[in-house]
Design a protein around this nucleic acid. Sequence first.
DNA 1: TCTGGGGTCCTAGGACCC
DNA 2: TCTGGGGTCCTAGGACCC
Length: 474
Amino acid sequence: MPDVRATASVLHLDLDAFFAAVEQRDKPSLRGKPVVVGGTGGRGVVATASYEARVHGVRSAMSTREARSRCPHAAYLAGRFPAYREASVVVMELLRSLSPLVEPLSLDEAFVDLAAAGLPDLEVDTVTAVAQEVRAELHRRTGGLTASVGLATSKFMAKVASDLDKPDGLVVVPPGSEPELLRPMHVSVIPGVGPATTERLRRAGLHQVADLERVSLEELVRLVGRAHGTSLHELCRAQDDRPVVAEREAKSVSVEGTYETDLTDRRLMEGLLTRQAGEVAARLAAGGQSGRTVSIKVRLHDFTTLSRSATLDSPTDRPAVVARVARALLADLDTSGGVRLLGVGVSGLADWVQDDLFGGTGVTGVDEEVVDLPTEVPVDPRRHRTAWAPGADVVHDHHGRGWVWGSGRGVVTVRFETAETPPGPVRSFAVDDPALRHWTRPDPLDPADGETTAAEAPTAVPTENPSPAPTPPS
DNA sequence: TCTGGGGTCCTAGGACCC
DNA sequence: TCTGGGGTCCTAGGACCC
């Protein structure tokens, strides 16, 4: 049973129509007028609508096409994220000056734990006064932005409260009054209850929070699953003791894009994936991180969404590696009907980069110190189902097909295996051995291809000892 | 030419290990 | 030859959030 605090010491702050408000602040001619920020292209959606636009029925997540038909005279803007980030930093710093325990949820939203703020007490009057001061100071420091604030005994109730008097409001839920506030509300106020869950609950005759209170835990679990049912059972009684957590590590990094017209050209798709992989890798590297699992996302013309992933033996932050895995994953998908979205992501993040595995001497660049790699590699047939190579990135896909590319100098030991054939023999190559180089398949679309010097397997991997390869033209 | 982009979390099934 | 259970890792898809 959650142990809910006794004071209204959780603060939730939500900046009002944030992106649109920043635009109106920075461009006086937009003030008092409908402003819509979001994708302005044919497949764009609304990120934020100013209150003047909301009057006409424009909402977040609505297609821009529909927004334009509802409110043709609004200003449609693509957005200036650096400006939003800058304003967000000002707000988050203000909140952190209040309490060290600030949990940002996005650029425009955060929880603050006032129990860590060192206030004389946490009575309703005290926390209310603090919240009013914060709102006034925020208005001053941001050049006129406003925020809606909720104060309550839990994250859930504080968020419910901040929603009750938008924009520019402050609502305090006195400790003990939560259930009666919640009971008449629609089930969708509960976080995690979206369209699909709402529909399931509706079919079970459950509409208001009060209806949920009358349902047993077992019944809720049966309806919506273990995790969801358990949290529903607690939250409908306002039982929420989730702590405010200041720093949360990112678990994945991804880049995706929707294209104005459906893509049909595979080479173009590979080129786009390659570019996205480069962005992902750059963001990983900038954060001093690397990841083991590379994923792609493909949305087809009919909006069905596919994902494929492959997990490497060791983490990488290298663009050429992420790109090759991404392209290989795409190779298995039927995209003949056209593709509207492509994306690349890396997860399974580690706080260190792959090169650290090899003593930090680096195995990636020609200017790096030469690394001594082991000349013999033990391969355990039960553990190494696919190609294996020291100092190289190895990947196998969900069909058990393996391939390898070298990333250094010295010796690379490789074993190939395919879904159709038993494991091939283990072979060791010097990385400049033409027999290994035989595997490379330069990709004219990949600007990063030149980086990798040792080896790359073709899509169809031979499993027999290759006959001596001709020396490639140089 | 309905339906973005960046994330998180959950579920279910299969492989594998003990 | 047949039968097992638990735990972990991986993959694919889906729901949800801002």
